[in-house]
Design a protein around this nucleic acid. Structure first.
Lengths: 151, 151
DNA sequence: GACGCTATTGCAACCTGTTGCAGTTGCTAG
DNA sequence: CTAGCAACTGCAACAGGTTGCAATAGCGTC
């Protein structure tokens, strides 16, 4: 169907990047890459496996997770953890951003550049820690719920 | 052995607090409470179960987790997630504090009052979000590792 | 002190991930 | 085009948690 070369960036070159590292381009990895190329934002491990199975019903979970490890090493995805600790993958991580989960209303929102930088700066102020904001979903209460509970 | 009444605060009153809510004091809950009373700081779910088994070899995981849910409602423990997403319980949560995990050296350190407040303030600045810093272990690089990698 | 309501337990099945291992198969060299 | 090495796959077993359900057993009441 779609030759590797027709995949959108940054996926088009994956095959060669793997080979250059002595790693291999296999049908299973191709499935994962094609699914990821069609995904944006976040996916949980389970979702990803399900989408791979739509593509190839023989998909084996351990293979998918191992492929994700490899793709993470290439910097094409990054794993993190949702509010419940479940794994979550950020596809083609663009701008550094974080996730805030409201324990009351259950909504997740993102924090981007200006505020994210302020938060990163606050962590740096503690011990000089360089935080990777995107790795975890931070839990708390959003402004609306905080106001509702206070009022 | 140790009657409930002899447990240190805040555990001594658990039995009655449960009963007042129409909940029950059972041998299984007692085991969990006794183990928690002898623990300070953090425990993972698995550790806790193991310690309960030392106490009562019949301990069943689901019972322990359900007991923890109840104790969390009473405010006696709080659950969070370690850097790998695994569950972690904070016993008798005292001061609000957070956990920083360095992805390079693997050390976890705590952030307490003054810096924690600054970080909480930074989150508040983003959308008015009231963060629960203790819920997740934040991942990044500690000052030493950051310096080493930069230098 | 017995009764009955219902919270709680134990169990078994399931979910998300991880790991060790033996067999398969990309890929590079010739 | 073939051979061979090592990377990769599939599988099966495991680890930490969660859930539905039938049976058990606290405990407030009489």
């Amino acid at each position: 169907m779609s030759p590797v070369e027709s995949l959108p960036e940054p996926w088009a070159g994956v095959r060669d990047r793997l080979r250059r590292r002595g790693l291999r381009w296999t049908p299973q990895r191709r499935t994962v890459v094609e699914v990821l190329a069609a995904t944006d934002g976040h996916v949980t491990g389970a979702e990803l496996i399900e989408r791979c199975r739509d593509h190839d019903p023989q998909t084996i979970p351990s293979t998918v997770y191992r492929t994700l490890d490899v793709l993470e090493e290439l910097g094409l995805v990054r794993h993190g953890h949702g509010a419940d600790g479940r794994e979550e993958f950020h596809v083609s991580p663009g701008a550094e951003h974080g996730h805030l989960y409201c324990a009351d209303c259950g909504q997740t929102r993102e924090i981007r550049a200006p505020q994210a930088d302020a938060i990163i700066g606050a962590f740096r102020g503690a011990d000089g820690f360089e935080v990777d904001l995107s790795h975890v979903t931070v839990v708390g209460r959003c402004a609306d719920c905080a106001a509702r509970l206070a009022g």
